[in-house]
Amino acid sequence: MNELTTTRSNPLIDPHLHIWGHEVALYLFLGGMVAGIMVLTGLYYFIKGIDREAPGFIRNGMLASPILLSLGMLFLFLDLEHKPNVLRFYLTFQVTSPMSWGSWILIVIYPVSIAMIVLANRGRWWVDWMPALSARVVPYWRAIALANVFFGALLGLYTGILLSSFTARPFWNNGVLPPLFLISGISAGAAWMILFHDGRSVREKDELGLIKLGLIVTEIMALVLYISSMLASAANQHEAVFLVLGGPFTAQFWVFVVGIGLLVPPLLQGMELLHKLESRFVMPLLVLVGGLVLRMLVVQAGQMSHVVQLTEVLR
């Protein structure tokens, strides 16, 4: 038997010692979703060109991305314990800090996504009202579309890299987490855009639905890799993974992330693609709920996971 007594306060018991709460999880979710919207919209324009007007759900979906990102950054700001120093993020660049990389990526996202919005919403009065802006953007449509794919992917990946770089937290310290977050973000982005479907452009919606189905299958594979790699790993990761396999996060993980977020949506999507069901809101909302709970769970479980004390093994 090993009994450990400590005179210090415990971050798992004392609320004032907790690290990150739901604000960070909400930011990771919104950031991932914006990344997805940018990647999908960028890809759409890069493949299909700008001659034909894009369906409304792509144009409207993209329109919200800077607002969603700003909302995410507001949550991030709310999580800061010393808010007056917020500008310190932008007075330096720390090459070893993923958070520093992320702060600067967020700044680049704004002009890139706004250029895409102008490109996607040509013909609408508020774009035509500024013909000079539109004229400057349109010639570079291919570069703008590619930049949205690139920086969108960077944004989606960095949220995972930020967490996976912490060797101190075995539940996060996993190379599969960045691609898992990216895929989950793109999936959430597709779900967000489907919410704006107005009944027209059925072919495009079906195409997006097919992409969405592929994304969910890829996300399931990434999640299986994430869990199995930890199960097959050394003591640190092996202990951490039991937080979702019998530990305190088991129900959340299996019911919300796996069940509601990953297993039910492809069934609904499949029936919708066969035109046997019209689930305009249900399927996308389930995907969004699954993506949000995934972030909340990963943020909380990561903080509970600890590196095994090697000295105990030696004794």
Partner: peptide
């Protein structure tokens, strides 16, 4: 320090 708590997590 901004109180971002990245160091605490690390």
């Amino acid at each position: 320090c901004t109180g971002c708590k990245a160091c605490i997590a690390a």
